[in-house]
Structure formats: structure tokens, C-alpha cells
Design a protein around this nucleic acid. Structure first.
Length: 410
DNA sequence: TCTGGGGTCCTTACCCTG
DNA sequence: TCTGCAGGGTAAGGACCC
């Protein structure tokens, strides 16, 4: 099949024609995971396809044909199977997603150095420095759309505006396979008819609260006194939404946003009440988080434990260390102490998670040996393990207690 | 119906310090 | 010495995003 056969008709929408100041682009892949999965299953184009895992997982992505049947991302897979038994269900292929994402981000980088990735499948671009070389923002957006389709065999949608927030909304409103330009003098016309839920930061709870105030559109928010909004939503959220409702968003495209936290969590296939098995999972998670910190060159100061019980209630507990660390055993010791402090007696647990916060770059962190601490020890051992894993795979070396998952702690 | 995983940001409460 | 207060750090939880 030739590449051109994949191309859909361009869903280009113009909210105006004067794009001179619209140098912020938001590029978002359409149904990313599903589209990537379909590259190797072209016979499924035009059919309902749902990407997700088994067990207690949720829908990661669905084609627009599946969405027409009522499927949406984050829906439990068990429910999706019930609603759309005729759909094709595909296991996620994270390696393929990462590979396509790298290709797309490299394409963005060839357009402008000012690229701020938001996730695997979307990014903001500031193209103000590329106008002389590549033409108007709209021309650049069309170029990106054509190249993504030709090089990656998937479609994307692009919002073009003067601010990040409006560009993001524009790409959403142009989906799938579309382009929407919102010039500065049309921002209010574009924003005010939209439902409040379209605003970034308005989810289910906030929308319900706004509805109680009788506010249904962005225009309603714009015409509500700031004091009313801050009373209902708090100082930060109220002010934020009021600013957005008038199209004011001063944030620039920032390509080097530092990481603030690193976490890993795991939902069990079945709820667990055996402390020894919980400990083993905490060890594996601590090991994983610390490995990611070392790979990224960070150390973290605050260790956080998350526990979700069988009834879905969730608690977190955290402790700030005297000095930052990227050593898995230090993370585990802390997280286990936090777990023990809960004093749980064979309570059924659905999920455990480990998070490191208060990140600083490792070379900026002061390294001071504690009294009695050997100069070489756990960290050196874990760095050696990193080297082995890089060469032989992530499962090549594991903490002894994790080699046999059925083994109980003594 | 039955709810993943990896993040960010905000609010509130509490403690400590000056 | 005691009290009130402001400000910073920490902890916990909630809402939201993709």
C-alpha cells in the first residue's frame, strides 16, 4: 500500500485568515496508540479498534469508529468489551509508541528548537524563528501535518494561535486530521461559546461546581466577577480560569522544563493482603524509581508511598530525607517504614506506588557521608547493576528477594 | 460499571522559628 | 516569659491532564 493511500482528506478549518502573530502551534496526534497499532494492521482502518491491556486495565486509545460506539479512553476495558464486543481489541505496544514519538519530536526539532513536549503524542512549538525560512504559521502547520503523515503514517491535528492555551483548544476542536487557526482578534469569538469543560483545568468536579453557579460557557465565566470565582474555586483556580476565559495566557514555550517527581505504581491483578508480597512489590517499585532517577541524573529528597485499598480509597504518606538520594535500597527502607507505620493488619490492597519528589540534579546535590557510612556501598552496587541491565536487559539483574516472586520474606 | 499509570499543581493543616 | 503573628517547610489529599 502506498503511503498516499493512508492520507485522509484534509480537515482544514479556518477561524480567520490573519495568522501573522499566531506563532504558537499545538500539535496533537489523532488517537495516537490506536493509529500506531494500525500501521501494522492496515486492514483494520475504518473499523472500531480499542487499545488496552487485560485484567483491571482501562482503554488507552480507540479509533474514531470505536468512539462512535461510546468508547473513550480511561474507560475500564471490561466495560469496553461489554459495550463494543464487535470491536478489535489490541494489546498496547509501548516500544512502537516510543519509536514513533521520537520520530515526530525529531521532526518538530527540525522546524524549531523551541519545542515543549507534553506527552508522547503532543507538543507546543514556537515557530516565530522559522517564519522567514518556512513561511507563515499556517504553512508550517500544513508542512508538519504532511510530514507526520508521510514519515509516520499517522495523522495529527494542529492548533495555531497567539497563546499556548488557545492553540491547545484549537487543535482539540479541529480533530481529527484538522487544522484550526485562531487569530488574536478572533480569540474571544472562538472562546466564549465553548462549554466550561473545554477550559484547561476544568474537570468533572469543577464543571459541576460551575454549573451550580449557573455558568455553562466560557463567556459566562468571563462575565462573572473574579471575587465570585475565587470564593467558589479558591484563589489560584478562580484567577486562572478568569484569565483563560479572556484568552490571557502568558506562558511561553519552554523546551527545558525540569522534572519535579518520578513515580511508579502497580495495580494488582487481585487484591493482596499478604505483607510479605506487598514488601516485595515495594522493593521492586523503589528499585525502578531509583533506577530512573539515576538514568535521568536526578536525586530526590522526599519519598512518598501510595496505597489504594480494595474499596478504592487511597492514602499517601511521605517522608523527607536528611539528604537527597537515588539509591534504591534507601528509597525502599523509607517506603517500607512508611508502610509499617500504617499498622495495617491483613487489609486487602489494590495498588501500591512509590514516588520521589524534591528532585535536584545529581551533580548539584551536596554529597555528604553520614556518620559511619562506608564511602563505597549501595549506590556503587546499583550503578553496576544499571550497566548490566543496559547491556543484558532490564530483567538481567534483580534484587534477590524478587528473583522468585512466590518467595515469602523471612 | 468499576475505575491504569505517570505526572503537575493547589489547598489545607500543622509545626517550627523569629 | 508569654502571646500573637507571619512565613517557611512539610505532610496529606484532591483535582486535573494525557
Amino acid at each position: 500500500m502506498s503511503r498516499s493511500q493512508v492520507r485522509r482528506p484534509t480537515g482544514r478549518i479556518g477561524f480567520g485568515v490573519d495568522d501573522a502573530d499566531c506563532t504558537i502551534l499545538h500539535v496533537d496526534m489523532d488517537a495516537f496508540y490506536a493509529s500506531v497499532s494500525l500501521r501494522t494492521r492496515p486492514e483494520l482502518h475504518g473499523t472500531p479498534v480499542i487499545v488496552g491491556g487485560g485484567g483491571r486495565s482501562v482503554v488507552l486509545s480507540a479509533t474514531y469508529e470505536a468512539r462512535a460506539l461510546g468508547i473513550h479512553s480511561a474507560m475500564p476495558m471490561s466495560r469496553a468489551r461489554r459495550i463494543a464486543p464487535q470491536a478489535v481489541f489490541i494489546e498496547p505496544d509501548h516500544r512502537a509508541y516510543a519509536q514513533v514519538s521520537r520520530g515526530v519530536m525529531a521532526l518538530f526539532a527540525s522546524i524549531t528548537p523551541l519545542v515543549e513536549p507534553l506527552s508522547l503524542d503532543e507538543a507546543f512549538l514556537d515557530v516565530s524563528g522559522a517564519l522567514r525560512r518556512l513561511g507563515s504559521p499556517t504553512a508550517i502547520a500544513e508542512l508538519i501535518r504532511a510530514r507526520v503523515q508521510d514519515e509516520q503514517l499517522i495523522t495529527c491535528s494542529v492548533g495555531v494561535a497567539t497563546t499556548k492555551f488557545v492553540a491547545k483548544l484549537a487543535s482539540t476542536r479541529s480533530k481529527p486530521d484538522g487544522l484550526l487557526v485562531v487569530p488574536a482578534d478572533r480569540v474571544i469569538d472562538f472562546l466564549h461559546p465553548l462549554p466550561v469543560g473545554a477550559l484547561w483545568g476544568v474537570g468533572e468536579k469543577t464543571e459541576a461546581q460551575l454549573t451550580r453557579l449557573g455558568l455553562r460557557t466560557v463567556g459566562d465565566i468571563a462575565n462573572t466577577p473574579l471575587a465570585t470565582l475565587t470564593r467558589a474555586l479558591g484563589q489560584a483556580s478562580g484567577t486562572h480560569l478568569h484569565e483563560l476565559s479572556w484568552g490571557r495566557d502568558p506562558r511561553s514555550v519552554n523546551p527545558h522544563e525540569p522534572e519535579k517527581s518520578v513515580s511508579n505504581e502497580e495495580t494488582f491483578e487481585h487484591d493482596i493482603d499478604d505483607p510479605a508480597i506487598i514488601h516485595a512489590h515495594l522493593l521492586a517499585l523503589a528499585d525502578k524509581v531509583a533506577g530512573r532517577l539515576r538514568a535521568a541524573g536526578y536525586v530526590g529528597r522526599t519519598v512518598s508511598l501510595k496505597v489504594r485499598f480494595a474499596d478504592f480509597s487511597t492514602i499517601t504518606r511521605s517522608r523527607t530525607l536528611p539528604r537527597p538520594t537515588d539509591v534504591g535500597m534507601e528509597v525502599y527502607d523509607t517506603v517500607r517504614a512508611l508502610y509499617e507505620a500504617l499498622g495495617l493488619q491483613r487489609v486487602r490492597i489494590r495498588l501500591v506506588g512509590v514516588r520521589m519528589e524534591g528532585l535536584v540534579e545529581a551533580h548539584d546535590a551536596p554529597h555528604q557521608l553520614l556518620l559511619g557510612e562506608p564511602e563505597h556501598g549501595r549506590r556503587e552496587a546499583e550503578v553496576a547493576v544499571d550497566t548490566l541491565r543496559a547491556r543484558y536487559g532490564s530483567d538481567a539483574v534483580r534484587p534477590a528477594r524478587l528473583v522468585n516472586p512466590d518467595r515469602r520474606e523471612q
